[in-house]
């Protein structure tokens, strides 16, 4: 009898525990791989009692494909890049955050509060941002590197030693900057120029590779590499004498954002997590892990001081304007696809 009492008490306690856990509920994230420290998720669970589960993806396009193929309704939050936020909103995959639903919305830095890809931040909050430009091996070339000529019209020392990102969006955006034209321009003369310029420039390129963009610089296979700022810093840490360029013609910036998905099964908890990520201390932990900048005020006290000193994060005064990759309409995109196939045929 005594034993039975014990067991039923334990069962009761267990079921109580279970109810209290489910009362706090769950949160399901769809996130890039290796982009958030586990300690931060544990901290969120400790503070709120909400269980966090996470699936990961490796490109914006594969995340979109998976959501379009029926995963919508499974996840609460995803972390698309700037242009992808706009595409997802256009496809009706995002929920709207009403005014006042996020207590910490005021923490968003002023320059990121009203971005072109999500006016008024109605679907998203900033996660991390950085830039895409190119890095040059200073042992091979000592001249001025802050020009897009390095990629598209290189000096003799660098010809044949250039690795480009194997990504249509990044290459087209940089090429448009080089020619001084609007991205996604549907002007026929400009599109023909773009096609001709890229075909000619390819003769000087060694390879297209995104996954090993950093490794080819470290190994010395390439002397110039189109690259993300964080990868450039890591290449230098691994011994490559590379300098990150800020071309006078401009360079590409990107921002990953946490978005509230349509039909989120745990909408309340998703909003709590967004508020959690807008706390300077928490988002700084992401920056220290991923080595990129956040778009939140007041992080200075929490961020690794080394991070602020990186040359990749401090453009010189000569640097051109940073631009986001733009989303082309179907008609222009069809021409872009054609140019890309021409380039790689």
């Amino acid at each position: 009898m005594k034993n039975l009492m014990k067991i039923s008490t334990a069962a009761l306690a267990l079921s109580l525990g279970a109810t209290s856990a489910s009362a706090e509920g769950n949160l399901v994230l769809y996130h890039w791989f290796e982009y958030i420290p586990q300690e931060l998720l544990d901290k969120f669970t400790a503070e709120t009692g909400i269980n966090v589960t996470m699936d990961t993806y490796d490109s914006n396009e594969s995340m979109l494909a998976s959501l379009k193929a029926g995963a919508i309704g499974t996840y609460d939050l995803a972390v698309p890049g700037d242009y992808m936020v706009k595409i997802m909103a256009g496809e009706g995959l995002l929920d709207t955050i009403a005014d006042g639903e996020l207590a910490n919305k005021g923490n968003i830095a002023r320059e990121w509060a009203d971005p072109s890809f999500d006016r008024g931040r109605t679907h998203s909050i900033p996660y991390q941002w950085g830039s895409t430009s190119f890095a040059v091996n200073r042992d091979v070339y000592q001249g001025d590197i802050n020009t897009t000529d390095i990629l598209f019209n290189p000096p003799a020392e660098l010809a044949g030693k250039i690795n480009m990102l194997d990504s249509q969006g990044e290459v087209m955006a940089m090429a448009s900057l080089h020619l001084g034209m609007e991205q996604c321009s549907n002007d026929r003369t400009q599109l023909k120029d773009l096609n001709a310029m890229l075909t000619a420039a390819k003769a000087n390129w060694a390879s297209f590779n995104s996954d090993t963009a950093k490794e080819v610089l470290v190994s010395g296979d390439a002397a110039v590499g189109q690259i993300y700022d964080g990868f450039s810093a890591k290449a230098r840490e691994e011994g490559a004498n590379v300098e990150y360029a800020f071309p006078v013609q401009g360079y590409v910036v990107w921002m990953d954002n946490v978005v509230l998905l349509k039909d989120a099964p745990n909408r309340e908890n998703a909003l709590k997590f967004m508020d959690f990520l807008l706390e300077p201390e928490n988002i700084a932990a992401v920056s220290n892990y991923a080595r990129y900048a956040s778009g939140v005020n007041g992080v200075a006290d929490f961020v690794d001081p080394e991070l602020a000193k990186l040359p990749e994060g401090n453009p010189p005064v000569s640097a051109g304007a940073p631009v986001f990759i733009e989303v082309c309409n179907a008609e222009t995109q069809a021409v872009y696809d054609k140019i890309w196939t021409n380039l790689k045929k």
């Binding site: 194997d166 390819k202 590779n209 790689k344």
Partner: peptide, 10 residues
């Protein structure tokens, strides 16, 4: 083709 050929040609 992608890794050894440099993905320059489809």
């Amino acid at each position: 083709p992608d890794l050894l050929g440099g993905a320059k040609n489809f």
